[in-house]
Computed example of a mutant assay.
Amino acid sequence: MLKKQMELLMNEQVNLALFDVERAYAEKHALLHEGAMEDRTSLHFNVIERCDKLNEELLAEETESFLAIPVQYLKEHSHEFMYVESDRFEVIRVDSFALEFDEAFGVYSALFGLRLQKKQGEFLHAYLTSHLQHEKMTYSMAFSGQDGLWEVNLALNAFGEFSEQQSFGEVFVGLYRFVFGLLVEIEETV
């Protein structure tokens, strides 16, 4: 599943910029082409929106420069959530990410749909349990048969390297790497 997505990505672009996790995967599976490939440190987004949590109304469409703002913005504007889409998410089988500050638990949350089969739920649960550690809520997940995906809600505070001083861009790259690692592990164990 991941190998096919990486092959598609590698075949679509010349001099493709890769994240460290992608490069390691491509090297391990002999997917790298001849020629120099740049290191990627950020994502390009097709959609960047700030929305109202109560009614999901669009408050503003943002430019990529907004992603340099610390994620603490969500705590200061607790009625808002961030919504982003990127073509690169296709590699990790995610359509979009939403970030919000969950006042009930006092944590930053990432919400996304992950296109995995229902039968992979036990593995997903085990992976999230072993990789997320926090004294409060760490994650929730539910399978949507109608959409054919896992609806996942992760507490960003459960990531060891998370800080509310990180920019939105850094947080989204961290989420990308996390889900990529999850897919690598699924592929290796199945």
Rank of each mutant, 00 (worst) to 15 (best):
M1S: 08
Q5Y: 11
Q5P: 04
M6L: 11
L8E: 14
E12L: 07
E12W: 02
Q13S: 09
Q13I: 10
N15K: 12
N15V: 10
L16M: 12
L16E: 15
L18M: 15
F19Q: 08
D20M: 13
V21W: 02
R23C: 05
R23N: 05
A24H: 11
Y25N: 10
H29W: 15
L31A: 07
L32I: 13
G35Q: 04
A36E: 08
M37R: 11
M37W: 05
R40F: 06
T41F: 04
H44F: 04
N46G: 04
V47K: 12
D52R: 04
D52M: 01
L54M: 05
E56A: 10
L58K: 11
S65R: 03
I69H: 01
P70H: 03
P70S: 09
V71K: 02
L74W: 10
E76H: 05
H77A: 12
H77Y: 10
H77V: 06
H77F: 12
H77G: 08
S78A: 04
E80G: 01
E80I: 09
F81N: 01
F81R: 09
F81H: 01
F81W: 00
M82E: 01
M82R: 00
V84R: 00
S86V: 02
D87M: 08
F89E: 03
F89S: 11
I92R: 03
R93L: 12
V94N: 07
D95C: 09
F97Y: 15
F97N: 01
A98M: 10
L99D: 03
L99N: 06
E100M: 10
E100V: 09
D102E: 15
E103I: 11
F105G: 07
F105H: 15
F105T: 11
G106Y: 10
Y108R: 13
F112K: 02
F112A: 05
G113A: 13
G113F: 12
L114Y: 07
R115I: 04
Q117W: 12
K118M: 14
K119G: 14
G121H: 02
F123V: 02
F123S: 04
L124P: 04
H125R: 15
Y127Q: 08
Y127K: 07
Y127C: 05
T129L: 13
H131L: 00
L132S: 10
Q133F: 14
Q133M: 09
H134P: 00
H134M: 04
M137S: 05
Y139W: 06
Y139M: 03
A142S: 14
F143V: 11
G145V: 04
G145Q: 09
D147V: 14
G148Y: 03
L149K: 15
L149G: 10
A155E: 08
A155F: 14
L156Y: 09
N157S: 13
A158L: 03
G160R: 06
E161Q: 14
F162G: 02
S163I: 02
Q165M: 05
S167Y: 11
F168M: 00
F168L: 02
F168Q: 03
V171G: 03
V171P: 06
V173G: 05
G174Q: 09
Y176I: 13
R177E: 06
F178M: 03
V179R: 00
V179Q: 00
L183F: 13
L183H: 08
E185Q: 15
E187M: 03
E187I: 05
E188V: 08
V190R: 14
